[in-house]
Design a protein around this nucleic acid. Structure first.
Length: 722
DNA sequence: CCCCTACTGATCCAC
DNA sequence: TCAGTAGGGG
């Protein structure tokens, strides 16, 4: 057997991992060490050397993007698509299992996946039914409670009846929510895993079937697994199926989302007879960058232990810039990028990394001023956009009339005269009669329990859906979707929103049609429509449409994981910002922040620049932050201070901006001060609450004793100070 | 039903 | 500070 095409391009460590015996294997893959490559080659090895069929291999990832990339690379390596390979995210695979065994899972055949937005609506409804005060019990809090429980594998019934009012109330909501979901066949993300885990526990034969079928399971980013995912894997593997897990404990940054770093730390104890391979050779960064990363992460205790190395040369030192304030910091970054581009480099090779999204604004402002094209990652994902979610709700209703979450969403979108009163009547009917909202609509109309106008409107809603559904099964997917978007009037509705927003919304709707046009189900057994609906629920879609212009990439440290850039800026390296002040509370959180810093550093290939601001305006207040302790943990010899603190001269642009704003405030204050008592010839006495603008357009807000608060134009108001 | 005002709260976010 | 949103008034 010629194995050269599988092993030739690999280094020794990588080969060891790829060609390891069919036993439990932990691959500790450092940043930039060729992790994906090892996974892909391992799969090829299993198929060609160990002679496993594609159907007997399961490969699990966390994101659809990762799954897609891996699939592409396997196809390229093997020169053919690996048909039958079980490939996907934890949720995608769990969903597939539940579709196949819906009876065993005690679900209706056409159960629907709901995302967090739908989930919140359902929870709100349950809480309203329980007559809980929304201000005292925020639905969002209940939502995260429920999701956290599910991630831990805990059902409502297992939450003990405690005297703790909070726990009792939450458990009550959780219970009501579970019942509501069960009644209307809704399954949330956590439920996919929880339910399929239970299916295996309750059906030994079914579990045995899969244990015979799968001969190997591979898991990517193992350090990100949470409790239920880990349990899911353990039950499935059950000492019968060997696992290859790949991950890096030093890059575990999702503890706040339920990920358990212990899962990778204890893997060797929990999975019998396992071996471990470390990938420590880095192919990405200069040795300076790696030494910085190694020095930093050495401050964490209880690591599995890794030391990145490279054959690359030292490269440039790490720059540290102490900015006067956040504007100065932003200008400095913009200036550096100008230099970089003048030297003939690409802007798309530059990334700006920050701890929290709020930090991007100041930098964006500077980029706009200096005309640096940029692109911000994150924000709303495609399938989270309002117009897309509305369109999907219609599509879901065409497919399955009893989707309560979808009815709630679009019963009055676009507005067709169904008011809150009518909707809550429909909800009441549905609850009293134990039927779905769709059934409630129909029943109430035939019973005549809706008034004339409301009845007409509801009938109109029913007709729209029924008309769309009529003959829907004969149409190709994209034609159907196009029809839905047009006939639901969503295009007109969203298109008429003012500004460029409407335009963008229509474009997105068109994009949705395009997406269906080249949609391919990865599960051939499902009908296209339900496959598409499931995909839309489980795949957030590409972050954003590709930007054509060469632009700087801006993102949070979290979303930078897995990416690499020749030039990386880590901004806001200040205590309180990074590490974030909220992470000082719990033990272990600082270590996670340190790992996040490690992730940031190891994104850089050639050059790393860190900046911090001595003063920063945060939540409307000027704050003085100390330099991040993480900077001190990097060997000082690797860092070069760009400018010594005591020689700082204020940049010209800053001085001007600052002086102007100071002058404005001063001149306004000269006239009236906030809180000052004033008198008006007509409105009488009042207190100054606020003012804005300057010169003849300046306006002032006064809270009058008799009239309440009013905005007045200062030059006409004839106010007198008292 | 839409717009304005007042209020709140504020890391990180895939599925 | 400011963004997002709930509730009142036109």
């Amino acid at each position: 057997m010629d194995v050269s095409h599988i092993l030739d391009s690999l280094n020794d460590e990588q080969r060891q991992a790829v060609a390891a015996p069919m036993r439990n294997l932990l691959v500790l893959a450092g940043a930039g060490s060729g992790k994906t490559r090892v996974l892909v080659h391992r799969i090829a090895w299993l198929m060609e050397i160990e002679r496993l069929t594609p159907t007997s291999i399961m490969a699990v990832t966390f994101t659809n993007k990762a799954a897609k990339e891996m699939r592409g690379r396997i196809e390229k390596l093997l020169d053919l698509p690996p048909r039958g390979l079980w490939f996907g995210t934890f949720h995608g695979i769990a969903h597939r299992l539940l579709r196949a065994h819906w009876r065993d899972a005690n679900l209706p055949e056409n159960f629907q996946i709901i995302d967090s937005d739908d989930q919140l609506r359902v929870i709100k409804r349950v809480m309203r039914d329980l007559q809980l005060d929304e201000t005292k019990w925020p639905p969002r809090q209940a939502q995260s409670f429920i999701n956290a429980q599910k991630d831990e594998g805990i059902r409502a019934e297992y939450i003990e009846a405690t005297s703790d009012l909070y726990m009792r109330t939450m458990a009550q909501v959780y219970k009501g929510y579970e019942e509501q979901c069960q009644r209307s066949g809704m399954v949330d993300f956590g439920e996919l895993l929880l339910r399929s885990h239970e299916v295996w526990l309750n059906n030994p034969q079914l579990l045995a079937h899969y244990q015979e079928r799968f001969r190997h399971i591979l898991v990517d980013e193992f350090q990100d697994t949470n409790t239920i995912q880990y349990a899911w894997l353990r039950v499935l593997a059950g000492n019968r199926i060997p696992l290859t897990v790949v991950g890096d404990d030093d890059q575990s940054i999702y503890g706040w989302r339920g990920a358990k770093i212990e899962n990778i730390q204890h893997f060797q104890n929990d999975f019998a007879d396992s071996m471990q391979v470390k990938l420590e050779r880095n192919y990405r960064s200069t040795s300076t960058i790696l030494d910085a990363a190694n020095g930093l992460i050495a401050n964490n205790g209880s690591r599995l232990g890794k030391q990145l190395w490279t054959e690359e040369n030292e490269g440039e030192p790490i720059d540290l810039y102490s900015a006067f304030n956040e504007q100065d910091e932003a200008n400095y970054v913009a200036d550096c990028i100008d230099d970089w581009v003048k030297k003939g480099n690409l802007r798309s090779d530059v990334a700006i990394l920050y701890r929290s999204n709020a930090q991007s604004r100041v930098i964006e402002d500077a980029f706009i001023r200096q005309q640096v094209p940029y692109r911000v990652y994150g924000g709303l994902r495609f399938y989270d956009r309002m117009e897309i979610r509305n369109a999907l709700a219609y599509i879901r209703l065409v497919h399955y009339r009893h989707d309560d979450a979808a009815v709630e969403r679009v019963i009055n979108v676009p507005p067709r005269g169904i008011g809150n009163k009518t909707i809550s009547d429909i909800r009441d009917h549905a609850r009293n009669e134990s039927v779905t909202l769709w059934q409630a609509c129909n029943e109430m109309i035939s019973l005549g329990s809706l008034r004339g106008r409301a009845a007409n409107a509801v009938q109109k809603f029913i007709d729209v859906i029924e008309d769309l559904a009529d003959g829907a099964t004969d149409l190709p997917l994209h034609t159907l979707v196009e029809k839905v978007i047009n006939e639901s009037m969503l295009k007109e509705f969203h298109g008429s929103e003012k500004g460029e927003k409407g335009q963008a919304r229509v474009e997105n709707l068109n994009e949705l049609i395009n997406a269906t046009r080249d949609f391919e189900a990865d599960d051939e057994e499902m009908e296209p429509l339900s496959a598409f609906i499931a995909q839309a629920a489980l795949d957030a879609g590409e972050n954003q449409a590709e930007e054509h212009e060469d632009s700087v990439q801006m993102m949070t440290l979290h979303s930078a994981k897995g990416l690499e850039y020749p030039l990386v800026f880590m901004v806001g390296m200040e205590e309180g910002l990074f590490p974030h002040s909220r992470s000082a509370e719990e033990p272990g959180r600082i270590e996670e922040e340190r790992r996040l810093c490690y992730v940031g550093i190891t994104r850089a290939m050639e050059k790393l620049v860190m900046t911090h601001a001595e003063t920063r305006r945060l939540y409307g207040q000027e704050k003085y932050h100390a330099v991040s302790p993480f900077i001190r943990e990097i060997p000082a010899s690797l860092i070069q201070e760009v400018r010594l603190k005591n020689t700082v001269t204020r940049p010209v642009s800053f001085q001007r901006a600052n002086d102007e704003s100071w002058a404005t405030a001063a001149s306004s204050e000269a006239a009236f001060q906030l809180g000052q008592l004033v008198s008006h010839p007509i409105f009488g006495e009042g207190t100054v609450l606020n003012y804005e603008g300057q010169g003849p357009h300046a306006r002032i807000q006064v809270n009058f004793l008799s009239e309440g608060s009013k905005w007045l134009v200062m030059s006409y108001a004839k106010l007198e100070a008292l």
